[in-house]
Design a protein around this nucleic acid. Sequence first.
DNA 1: CGGAATACAGAATATTATCCGGCAAACAGG
DNA 2: CCTGTTTGCCGGATAATATTCTGTATTCCG
Lengths: 151, 151
Amino acid sequence: MLDRTDRRILKVLQEDGRITNTDLADRVRLSATATAERMKRLVRDGYIEHFSASLDPKKVDRGLLVFVEIRLERTSPEIFDSFKRAVERAPDILECHMVAGGYDYLMKSRVKDMEAYRTFLSDVVLALPGVRETHTYAVMEEIKDTHILPV
Amino acid sequence: MLDRTDRRILKVLQEDGRITNTDLADRVRLSATATAERMKRLVRDGYIEHFSASLDPKKVDRGLLVFVEIRLERTSPEIFDSFKRAVERAPDILECHMVAGGYDYLMKSRVKDMEAYRTFLSDVVLALPGVRETHTYAVMEEIKDTHILPV
DNA sequence: CGGAATACAGAATATTATCCGGCAAACAGG
DNA sequence: CCTGTTTGCCGGATAATATTCTGTATTCCG
C-alpha cells in the first residue's frame, strides 16, 4: 500500500522524471537515503512502469494526430492474434484499444500530415489482418494531452 | 536539424528517461561531455518537452480506461474557452481533442471502475459548459499504449 | 515484555555531472 | 588560398549526486 509520502513521490516523478534524488528528497521532506529506497521499491513493486522523455510531435514531423475506429471481420483466434502482433510492431500506432462489445478497435496514431496518413492507412491499417472497415477522426486541436494520473 | 546521433539520443531517452548521462554516452558512442551538451540543446530547443514516470494505472486505482465522444452545443467563444479551461483542471481527463469539423471532442479518461465512471460522467463531463451529448466507449483490452515517436 | 522487522538518518565512499582548457574540422570573408 | 571564427568534441579536474554502511528509533508480533 501507498502512504502519503509515496504518493507525493509519484506525483513529483510524474511531473519531472529526471529530478535528482536529492531534490526529490527535499520536496517530500525525507532523507536522500529513505527517498532512494522508496523510489526503488515503487519501481520494483510495479507502481512505476518506466521513465521516459516526451517529445514535441511537431518537432519530429508528427504534427498530425488521428484516431481510427476499426471494425474487424468475424475472425479466428489466430487472425486476432496476428492483428495484435502487427499493431505492436507498427511504430506509427501509438495506442490501440479494444472497445465495447464486438470486434471494434480504437487506434491512436501520429503522422506527419494528411498525405502521410493516407499512406499509413493503406499500407499499415488496411494491411492489418481481418480489417473490414475503418473510420478516421483527424484532430484539429489538442486541448489536453497528458498521462499523469492523480495519486 | 537533427542528425543521426540526436535521433539516437531521443530514441534512448524515450525508452529510458532516467538513464545516466554516462550510460547514454556509451550507447550513442560519444563522450559524456558532448552527450550532455546535445541533450541540453534538445531540451532547450523544445525537441524534448519533459521527462516523466509512467505509472501502472491498475496499481493506482485507475483500472478502467474510457473514451468519451462529446458534442457541444452551438456556443459562444466564452463558453468554448471555459470548456477548455475546465478540461485542463480536471485531473481525470487525460486527453481531450477537437476532432473533425463541428463541435466534437474525443476525450480519454482513466477511472477506477464503472461506478467511478458514472460519477465522473455526471459530475465532471456533464458539468462541463456547453455539453449537449456524449457517447462512451469503455476499453475492454489495451493492445498497445505508448507515446514513443519514431525518430 | 522481548525480539524481529521496518524505516529512517547521517557519514563514508563510489559514481556521475559539470566545468574548463585545448584541439581539430568546417566555414566565411578577404 | 589563407586565416580568423565558429562548432563540436575530448579528457582531466572539480563539484554534485547516488549508494553503501552503520547505528538508532519505532512498530509489530508472539
